[in-house]
């Protein structure tokens, strides 16, 4: 009873990927991959996804810890707000970022006026757009790990005189390391595939804001073969990341 729908489900997920593999221009793959615009997009994608992940770790781990450990009024609302980018269409996220951090945005106009800093059309803008969309993946993963960690270890550290920060650094962080690792990998993978928020907020320019997904989209209209090659690279990266995850952490 269950096998047939399960097989249909599997085929539904695998068939499009198979299409990608079958239609790929294998014979010219090497020369196409070595083209400077593809390397530019790949380099920019890896760089911006890594920076976005670091940014998410910096603010996401503390946020997850607060959500899991500190009881404050409105915690459920805050948790709901954190997950909003998960369900929000990324293009809407990009528009929201423009309204907040764009050159005439709520905060952006002051950044421009005081520091001469504008985020749209810059690699920093790409990193922010990716972090906005990917942060919930990290927070949810880490919050789960913090909740699952045994409170008694932290209590024991506290009774031995460790400060809250020392306890967090020396006890909590090692306990939740696998959760942080899994969250960071998911966060990185999501950032790598980000399209809507990036093109809306950061624009599109080769070498500066044109990441792999943007290059795929724009190549599709001009050179579908190049789009397939770019897609293959993204697919390979995703598979490697997920395979690595499965081996090391329970997902």
């Amino acid at each position: 009873m269950l096998v047939l729908p399960a097989l249909i489900g599997l085929a539904f997920l695998v068939l499009p990927l198979l299409g990608l593999l079958v239609r790929a221009p294998w014979s010219t793959l090497g020369t196409r991959l070595a083209r400077p615009e593809i390397l530019d997009a790949l380099r920019l994608s890896l760089l911006s996804a890594t920076l976005a992940t670091l940014l998410c770790l910096l603010v996401g781990v503390p946020l997850a810890w607060v959500l899991a450990r500190v009881d404050f009024p409105g915690r459920r609302l805050v948790r709901a707000l954190v997950t909003v980018p998960l369900v929000l269409p990324p293009v809407v996220g990009g528009v929201a970022l423009l309204l907040a951090l764009g050159r005439n945005g709520l905060v952006g106009r002051w950044l421009d006026r005081w520091f001469g800093l504008t985020l749209p059309f810059t690699t920093a803008g790409v990193v922010l757009a990716e972090a906005f969309v990917a942060l919930p993946f990290l927070v949810i993963s880490v919050e789960g790990a913090v909740r699952a960690a045994d409170l008694r270890y932290e209590d024991a550290a506290a009774t031995l005189g460790a400060s809250r920060w020392t306890t967090f650094r020396r006890v909590t962080l090692p306990l939740i390391a696998p959760g942080v690792g899994a969250g960071a990998v998911l966060c990185w993978a999501r950032a790598l595939g980000e399209f809507g928020a990036t093109i809306t907020f950061a624009g599109n320019f080769p070498g500066r804001t044109q990441t792999m997904p943007l290059a795929v989209y724009l190549a599709l209209e001009n050179d579908p073969q190049a789009a397939i090659v770019l897609s293959l690279v993204l697919l390979a990266v995703s598979v490697v990341v997920l395979a690595g995850l499965r081996g090391r952490w329970v997902l």
Binding site: L98, G102, G203
Partner: peptide, 21 residues
Amino acid sequence: RPRSEEADSRTVLTRVRTGAA
């Protein structure tokens, strides 16, 4: 040296309208 290369004419105009460009 453009800051961005957009996918259609209306997006170019939007960049100007929103003050991004």
